[in-house]
Design a binder for these strands. Structure first.
Lengths: 140, 140
DNA sequence: GTGATTGCAAATCCTTTGCAATCTG
DNA sequence: CAGATTGCAAAGGATTTGCAATCAC
């Protein structure tokens, strides 16, 4: 609620127009507990708006990423997934078998990231990280 | 040399046929120092064989992954990338700006992976890991 | 009113698939 | 020779783009 409201206000302040479509997309993204594809957002919005277009969703998501409100990452199947920055505050574990996402704390990863910075000069961006593997349910 | 030779022999032993196309593809993959897309392999093979087809390359790569000789991961742009298992023995750092790959040792990551296993029951597969960030050259 | 934003349709890009022709073992 | 593998062309799915109509400010 508060979260998407402030995103909308901030967008308006930067001179972008607040359309019903943008409101719905941002609301959906902000209230989701996981990363969403453009197609998933589209499906969730169908009941509310018959005519909302996938292209509009892609354009809005691109805008949010450009403006720093959201992050775009790549799922294990090569599709793009989106989330607000708040939701990017944790690592994402993707199960290779069932495709589900699991958020995980990344505190314990910080030492290794510091190490990479020190040894290779490479600055890892934690909000883009996804780890692929097998979840407990699929681990037969 | 030895590496791709043993892959070919092993493939033959499993009943697959060794065609010139497969030889070239495997050789290219095994001699590359980084992950390659199907398109990149195609380009590298053009000089040697005018007629080699992208579909053949995709099919061969799929075969190698299925048979466990190679791994397929997803680059930051959503394209699939392939490497032999030997090359998967290190972490890959992808620069978000220039798109280049940097191999990195992942020894220091093991404790964190163990932690994820313990806390979430999630078994990370190290050979699929890619870390996105900014490389030293692009870090302005 | 004016310029930003939308919907629609078409275009791209990457990857997969069907099928007849060709090769490997 | 038989069946696996190839090339070609076409299909598929995800994402992007051009453009006229519409909407927010």
């Amino acid at each position: 609620m508060t979260h998407c409201h402030s995103m909308l206000q901030s967008l308006r302040q930067r001179g972008f127009r607040i359309t019903p479509q943008r409101e719905m997309i941002i609301e959906t993204l902000a209230h989701s507990d996981s990363h969403l594809s453009a197609e998933e957002i589209h499906q969730r919005l169908q009941p509310r708006s018959k005519t909302i277009n996938l292209a509009t969703i892609y354009r809005t998501l691109d805008l949010l990423v450009e403006q720093g409100y959201a992050t775009r990452l790549v799922g294990g199947d090569g599709k793009f997934l989106y989330a607000t920055r708040q939701q990017s505050r944790h690592l994402h574990l993707i199960c290779r078998k069932c495709g589900r996402f699991f958020p995980a704390d990344y505190e314990g990863l910080q030492p290794f990231i510091a190490q990479l910075k020190q040894i290779y000069g490479f600055q890892v961006e934690v909000e883009h990280l996804t780890f692929t593997g097998v979840c407990p349910d699929c681990d037969s």
